[in-house]
């Protein structure tokens, strides 16, 4: 469990102090316009940028007090579309940062529909294929390093995990994330651009604008057309009665 107590960043890009809790088993979506500070917030949650105001606590202990290697047992990060240095095989790349069993690797490859890419070199993959490989690596780090007796499966931080995926893959990935969250009691934090994905799959949403979290809560409360239209400077229509009665937002023609 990760808790924020008035945690924020003062240097640019800044994040205004905020409170919050990220609980095991939930899927939290961070949304907001370009430049709202979503990736910066994610790197603060990860501890890569340490909070300059307030404090973050992971399992009751200040984030900055955790040794880097132990922290890696509890949370993993999948950054935005970064090419790995040099040409790794998918298999090798998956085990960077952990020492996974063969069965775990096989299961993860299967989860993300990339078993056929196991022996391929990562630089030869398409953007969407590579994105799924990187996500599998993050999950692999957590699942192989978390002790099997732990009640919590760690925190998986994903920066725009669907940016290069087609809609079918987006759906499979979001469903997979949900299933990891329930199955392994993992907390999953996703920066998302697609508000309808957030609405359909997230348990809670944080809405960011100019470094400030201006709203948070259940998707159908936060993602209302009036606020969203104002923040994104876009004209929107709300379509009621989407899947499971969750509202969907569409661009007005």
């Amino acid at each position: 469990m990760l808790t924020l107590h008035q945690a924020g960043l003062t240097n640019t890009p800044a994040i205004a102090p905020l409170d919050g809790t990220i609980r095991p088993g939930e899927l939290l979506a961070i949304v907001g316009p370009n430049g709202a500070g979503k990736s910066t917030l994610l790197s603060m949650l990860s501890g890569f940028r340490s909070a300059e105001q307030g404090e973050l606590h992971l399992d009751g202990k200040p984030l900055r007090a955790w040794p880097i290697t132990e922290l890696a047992n509890r949370r993993a990060l999948v950054a935005q579309q970064e090419l790995p240095g040099f040409d790794w095989q998918t298999n090798e790349l998956l085990s960077l940062g952990s020492n996974p069993s063969k069965s775990l690797v096989a299961a993860l490859l299967d989860d993300l529909d990339i078993t056929h890419l196991a022996k391929r070199s990562v630089l030869s993959l398409s953007g969407g294929e590579r994105q799924r490989v990187m996500i599998a690596r993050g999950a692999c780090q957590l699942l192989s390093r978390c002790s099997p007796t732990a009640k919590e499966g760690g925190i998986l931080l994903l920066d725009e995990p669907t940016s290069a995926l087609d809609i079918g893959q987006q759906q499979r990935l979001m469903r997979q994330l949900r299933s990891w969250a329930t199955q392994h009691h993992m907390a999953i934090v996703c920066v998302l651009h697609d508000l309808n994905l957030a609405s359909t799959y997230a348990d809670r949403v944080w809405l960011l604008h100019q470094g400030q979290r201006i709203d948070h809560g259940l998707p159908n409360q936060v993602l209302n057309p009036a606020t969203i239209a104002k923040i994104y400077a876009a004209e929107l229509q709300r379509i009621e009665g989407g899947t499971h009665g969750k509202p969907l937002l569409a661009l007005a023609p």
Binding site: S46, F48, I68, L77, G85
Partner: peptide, 17 residues
């Protein structure tokens, strides 16, 4: 050095100083 190939932020999260 292997870990660093993931990029600095990701490598940090994977336990690299």
């Amino acid at each position: 050095l292997d870990l660093l190939q993931l990029g600095e932020a990701t490598a940090h999260a994977a336990g690299l100083d």
